[in-house]
Every structure is written in C-alpha cells, then in structure tokens.
C-alpha cells in the first residue's frame, strides 16, 4: 500500500507526538513540546493563507490575542466555561477576519501586508489600553480548563506538562488533518489556482474575493485556537501574545520550514521554538543567529528547510 502525502504527514506527526516523550530526560521537555505544537497550529493556518492562497498577513498575532483573551475574559465576565471560550474566541476571530478581510483582501502584495499589520497593532493596542476590561499590559489570569482533573477522575493521571503536551499534540494533528483535507478539496484547489495566477483562476470561474476571504478566515481561526491553547496552558496572558513580533514569528516559522507544506511549516515552528532554548548560553546573539538562519534559508533553500531537504534526498535516490 502506498501512502498518500496526506496520511504520510499525519502518520509522521502522530509518531513524533507519541514517541518523543520516550526520549525526554525531564518534565521540562513536555513544556517545550507543547509550545512547538501551539506554534504549529498557528503556522498551519499561515500555510493555508500564505502557502496555498498566496496572501501575506503580518497581523495574525491579533487573532491569537483574541483567542487568548477570550479564554481569560469570557469566563471572568460571563462565567462561560473555558472550553466554550475557545469556541467563542474562534468565532469572534472568524467574524473579525470576515469584516476586515472584505476590504483589505482587495489589496495586493505589500499593501495587504501593511493593512494586516495595522489590524494586528490595533488589537494589541486595545488589549494594552482597555485596562478596565483586559487589565492592561500587566496581563490577566486565565482559569483552569478542567480537563486534566476530569481525566484524573477516569484514572489517567498526567502531570500538568504531560497533559498539555498530549492535548496540544492532538489538537495539532486534528488541525493538520483538517488543513490537508482542505488541500485536496475544490476550495483548496481554487486557492492554489488563485495563487498561481489570479487572472487564470478567474477565467475558470474561481470567485477570487470569496476564496481569499475564506482562506483568511480559516487561518484566523487557527491563530485564535493557538492563542487560546497558549493562554489556557500558561494560565496567565499578557498583550504580548498579540504583539507585532509574534506575527512576524509566525510567518518566519512558516517560511523557514516551508510555507507550502504543513509538515514543513510545523518543522519550522519546532526549529524556531527550540533554537532560543538551545541558545540560552548565547542569549545576546539569538536574534543574530535567527536572522542569519533566515537569510541562508531564503538564499539557498527557497522552498523552506523541509521541502528542500526532502527534494535533495529524493534526487539522490533516483
């Protein structure tokens, strides 16, 4: 039986999530793993928007911020369960993406980037300045999800780190599965067509504005869920989550790993989450090393790390 690229990707992810803990020397690695998965979810959304539909967003941290603050504010103000708050955050993100996406997705190239950038900064400003609602730049507590206690009742006793590792891992696999299904669907093909040539896509009957808007909304939901998961596992969130640097980080992870491939982008998320942990000794040079890696990848491995490496390997095999 030959594996389709879709099942191959999901299999690789599942094996990595399930088997990596065997090599963890301490509980700290569960935390790093969970962070990689959270970033992986956001980056999967970027793959849909940038890799497939060819649209650039520099404001996706704004959606992550909405997802994160939904988990902090909805339970506090309307005593909503945190799990429902995740859904609420995703719904608000999708709605906002629809609202702001309608006008700004008419823009192209740099203009689109700048407009989304503005959106991200707006969200960040609201979170910073509406002190009565968000408690401002010092941040706000996020309630416990409660799922871990529930699992404990069923006899599955996980440490906090382990729980979030496996929970985020499952969410990432689910997110990747949905994205890969989209890839082969009519919508996915339409998205790739408009990336290839907008004129050609329109000629064959693709509704450009609608398709772009859909991709923007879907990726906004991915970013929002990733923000929610981050907030719930940290149990404390500050407006930094919606900051400009976080938006850039998402795009960088995707581009580094390979923006056209879900697995590649997740690989990029892993690399950029691990790098600062590995470089703690040279913390001062972290930005420099990141910049250098990025430049080298852009020059020598244009498709991103993973796809380029795979291509090299395949080329050798033939």
């Amino acid at each position: 039986m030959k594996l389709t690229p879709k099942s191959a990707t999901l299999l690789v992810l599942a094996v990595l999530v399930a088997l990596s803990p065997l090599f963890f020397p301490s509980g700290y690695y569960y935390r790093v793993g969970a962070l990689i998965f959270v970033n992986g979810i956001a980056v999967t959304g970027i793959v849909i928007l940038t890799g497939w539909a060819g649209q650039i967003s520099l404001g996706h941290a704004g959606f992550a911020g909405i997802g994160a603050y939904a988990c902090a504010l909805a339970p506090a103000h309307w005593s909503l369960h945190p799990a429902l708050a995740v859904v609420l955050g995703a719904a608000i993100s999708a709605l906002l993406a629809w609202l702001v996406g309608r006008p700004i997705l008419r823009l192209r190239g740099y203009y689109l980037g700048v407009a989304t950038l503005g959106f991200g900064i707006l969200v960040s400003m609201v979170l910073n300045n509406e002190r009565d609602l968000t408690r401002g730049p010092d941040g706000i507590e996020v309630p416990e999800l409660g799922l871990r206690a529930l699992l404990k009742g069923w006899g599955l006793d996980l440490s906090n780190g382990q729980f979030w590792y496996f929970f985020c891992g499952l969410c990432l696999i689910a997110g990747a599965w949905l994205a890969l299904n989209l890839y082969n669907s009519p919508t996915g093909r339409a998205l790739r067509a408009l990336h290839g040539s907008e004129v050609a896509a329109r000629t064959v009957g693709v509704d450009l504005a609608r398709m772009k808007l859909q991709a923007f909304m879907i990726s906004a939901v991915y970013a929002s869920v990733s923000g929610s998961l981050l907030a719930l596992q940290n149990k404390f969130i500050t407006p930094d989550v919606a900051g400009f640097m976080h938006s850039i980080e998402m795009v960088t992870m995707a581009v580094l790993g390979g923006v056209g491939s879900v697995l590649g982008a997740i690989f990029g998320a892993g690399a950029l989450t691990l790098l600062p942990q590995a470089l703690t000794v040279f913390a001062e040079y972290e930005q420099m090393v990141l910049g250098l890696v990025m430049m080298l990848v852009m020059i020598f491995l244009r498709e991103g790390l993973l796809p380029s490496i795979l291509r090299k390997l395949r080329g050798r095999g033939e």
Partner: peptide, 13 residues
C-alpha cells in the same frame, strides 16, 4: 511572559 514560564519550568524540572 511566555518565555519566562518556559524558563521557570526548565529551572524546576
């Protein structure tokens, strides 16, 4: 704050 949490976990675990 996110990094701080990771480092705190690392310090303890």
């Amino acid at each position: 704050p996110n990094k701080a949490r990771t480092f705190a976990t690392r310090l303890i675990e």
